[in-house]
Amino acid sequence: MISLIAALAVDRVIGMENAMPWNLPADLAWFKRNTLNKPVIMGRHTWESIGRPLPGRKNIILSSQPGTDDRVTWVKSVDEAIAACGDVPEIMVIGGGRVYEQFLPKAQKLYLTHIDAEVEGDTHFPDYEPDDWESVFSEFHDADAQNSHSYCFEILERR
């Protein structure tokens, strides 16, 4: 099963200049909980913004210009990325925008964090048809001392 995991502000903004323009430790914990011990696929820009392999996960970098870091697996196509994951129950696609666009048609599940923030962004989550998805989990949280904005975790499964 292919799943996408993303944090989205208003207007589906997911990033600005290779960074997330908010401070939500709870979302980072949600991300870790849902990706640990699963292969993660990301684009080169996302890889560069993280700066290191995510521990406890097979890191697969999709790029037309593969790098030389041998701590991760470099691939040039969506099919190659899927094959590099091996026989696993769930593959997690973690961004960025172009990689989400490439995998959305193949995805069966979306793990979304909806952030109540209007922020400037240069990267967006692809538009998706809500009628194609069923919400199977939703959990709202107010902003607090650690988390700069209110947010809602949601899991959607393709109908």
Rank of each mutant, 00 (worst) to 15 (best):
Ile50Gly: 00
Phe125Pro: 01
Ser64Cys: 14
Phe140Lys: 14
Ser150Trp: 08
Ser148Gly: 01
Leu24Asn: 09
Ala84Phe: 11
Asp11Lys: 15
Met42Ser: 05
Ser77Ile: 06
Met16His: 02
Gly56Asp: 10
Ala29Gly: 04
Lys76Tyr: 12
Leu112Thr: 01
Val40Met: 13
His149Trp: 00
Leu24Asp: 06
Val119Cys: 15
Ser138Glu: 12
Asp144Val: 04
Lys109Trp: 10
Thr123Leu: 02
Cys85His: 04
Phe153Gln: 03
Cys85Glu: 01
Asp70Leu: 14
Gly43Trp: 03
Val13His: 02
Glu134Gly: 09
Ala117Gly: 08
Val10Phe: 03
Asn37Leu: 08
Asp132Phe: 10
Pro130Asn: 12
Arg159Lys: 10
Glu80Gln: 10
Ile60Glu: 03
Asp79Ser: 12
Val136Lys: 10
Pro89Gln: 09
Trp22Leu: 00
Pro126Gly: 04
Glu48Thr: 12
Lys76Cys: 12
His141Pro: 03
Ala19Gln: 07
Trp47Asn: 03
Thr35Gly: 01
Thr46Val: 00
Val10Trp: 02
Leu156Ala: 06
Lys76Ala: 13
Val10Asn: 06
Met92Trp: 05
Glu129Phe: 10
Asp87Trp: 09
Leu156Arg: 12
Met20Tyr: 01
Ile14Thr: 04
Lys58Gln: 11
Ser77Pro: 03
Gln146Met: 09
Thr113Gly: 00
Leu112Val: 08
Asp144Thr: 05
Trp30Glu: 08
Glu118Ser: 11
Val13Gln: 03
Val78Phe: 13
Ala117Ser: 09
Ile5Pro: 02
Glu139Gln: 06
Phe153Gly: 03
Ser77Asp: 15
Asp87Arg: 09
Pro21His: 02
Gly56Thr: 07
Val40Thr: 12
Ala6Asn: 05
Arg98Ala: 11
Val78Ala: 15
Leu28Thr: 02
Asn59Trp: 05
Pro25Cys: 10
Phe153Met: 08
Arg33Lys: 14
Pro53Ile: 10
Ile91Ser: 13
Pro66Ser: 12
Ser64Gly: 15
Cys152Glu: 07
Glu80Asn: 05
Val40Leu: 15
Met16Leu: 05
Glu48Met: 13
Asn147Arg: 03
Ala7Leu: 01
Gly51Cys: 12
Gly67Lys: 10
Ser135Tyr: 12
His114Lys: 14
Ala6Phe: 14
Trp47Phe: 15
Glu157Pro: 02
Met42Arg: 02
His45Pro: 15
Glu80Ser: 09
Asn23Glu: 08
Asp142Gly: 09
His124Trp: 03
Val13Arg: 01
